[in-house]
Amino acid sequence: MDIELSANSDFVGVCYGTNGDNLPPPSEAVALCKMHNIKKMRIFTPDEEVLSALKGSEIELMLGVPDDDIEKLADPSFARIWVQKYVIDYSPDVKFRYISIGDEIMPHKAETALQATFVLTAMQNIYDSISFHGIENQVKVSITIGMRILGRSYPPSAGACLAEVSSYMCQIIKFLKDTNAPLLLNVDPFWSYVITPVNHMSISYALFTASSPVVKDRQYKYKNLFVAKLDAMYWALERAGAPSLEIVVCSVGWPSNGSERGASYKNAATFYSNLIKNMKLGTPRRPRRPIETYLSSLFDENKSGERESTKHMGLFFANKNPKYSII
């Protein structure tokens, strides 16, 4: 199945993970993106080999801050050094677009509770450091969250943050509003489909192939799960006092193989193709507002996660051959 990136290339990016022992070097990965008109890339940690490969490529970059660095970045001097080393030393040859602090840090979860106490300070210190260099309008500082941050997401108009994270998120949201930065969101239609009891969700709703609305919520009608999830988050942001805050989908994908139901080449090709076609349409809650979206991932990664499905999320095989017909 053809997946036409070129028509929406201004809104489409890829997540470039390196959890594999058979992947091509970064220089070849960047060249592959340029060949296929992929203009945006997300990396999860500062990798100087990747940053060097991106020089002069014109690919816009979302740079991730590992969870383990968040506490260190609460020290302003460390933040200044970090920004100098990984951003300023490569700019303007590398087009930095976002810096994302952490990945789904949850203040009420034991494994990330400590990092959560430092997130806002780390964001402020990174922002102050890039402001010192005069690039705060070019590079936006944000945080990556997941749908788990919501206590309710169905129907979409019931979207609201968990009570346990409300104070935490309100502080984050205020920072994003004050600095004109978007919220970065991981969206997971595949896993939502997998964990939903059989017969409670049609796969057509997850793959954008439903012929009629599956969910009717107030005046809004939903034919696919992806936009329903986005609208649930928009409602949650409105309840948190940020009705106009933008969302960038920084990870969404579908596996071409794996033991979970729905994991197949045909379904993945259908999902990606329909997702890309629908990105310019926005959501029922925010129509005609294109959704900047990063596909997960660039390559199949044979060391990614414990589930087989997570190893088959790539648009390309590790040998750089396209998994789908990318135009």
Rank of each mutant, 00 (worst) to 15 (best):
F271G: 00
I70K: 05
L295N: 05
V252Y: 02
M201H: 08
D47L: 06
P107N: 08
L32P: 11
N257V: 04
V141A: 07
I88S: 08
F132W: 08
M169F: 08
A242P: 07
A210N: 14
S131W: 02
L51Q: 03
L207K: 06
Y154E: 13
R285Q: 12
F175T: 11
L32K: 10
I135G: 01
A31F: 00
D68K: 14
A206M: 13
L245S: 11
L150A: 08
G262S: 12
L120M: 09
I38W: 00
T270G: 02
W191G: 00
I173G: 10
I291Q: 13
I291L: 11
K34C: 10
Q124W: 00
A263Y: 03
H36A: 05
P213L: 06
V83K: 00
E28C: 03
N37G: 12
G56K: 10
M313K: 09
F96S: 06
A7S: 14
P66K: 12
N22R: 15
I43W: 02
L207C: 06
K72T: 04
P182K: 15
C33L: 15
V214M: 12
G262A: 11
A268L: 04
R239I: 03
E28V: 05
D103F: 04
K34W: 00
R239T: 05
G56P: 11
T283K: 06
D75C: 06
S211M: 11
K223V: 08
G20E: 02
Y98W: 06
K95E: 06
A228S: 15
A113H: 12
P26R: 13
A7Q: 13
F299S: 08
D103P: 01
N186L: 07
S167Y: 09
P66A: 04
G258H: 07
N180D: 15
Y154I: 14
H36E: 04
I327P: 12
D2Q: 15
R261S: 11
I143W: 01
P92A: 15
Q138C: 08
R218K: 15
V214F: 02
T179M: 09
S157P: 03
N137V: 03
T144D: 05
K177V: 14
L150F: 02
F44S: 03
L176Q: 10
P284A: 12
N8F: 01
K177A: 05
T283M: 01
P290E: 09
K72F: 07
F316W: 05
Y324F: 15
P197N: 09
G134T: 10
I99Q: 03
S264M: 10
V215C: 10
K39F: 02
R307M: 09
E58S: 15
A206K: 07
L183I: 14
E164T: 15
K221I: 04
K216R: 14
A163W: 05
C33T: 02
E164H: 10
V94C: 09
V215T: 14
L51G: 04
Q115W: 00
I195H: 09
L298C: 09
L150G: 11
V252M: 04
P26F: 00
Q115Y: 03
C250P: 00
M123D: 01
S251K: 15
F271H: 04
S131T: 14
F299Q: 10
Y205T: 07
G64P: 06
D21A: 13
K323A: 05
F132H: 12
R97S: 14
V139Q: 07
L275Q: 07
K95S: 09
A116M: 09
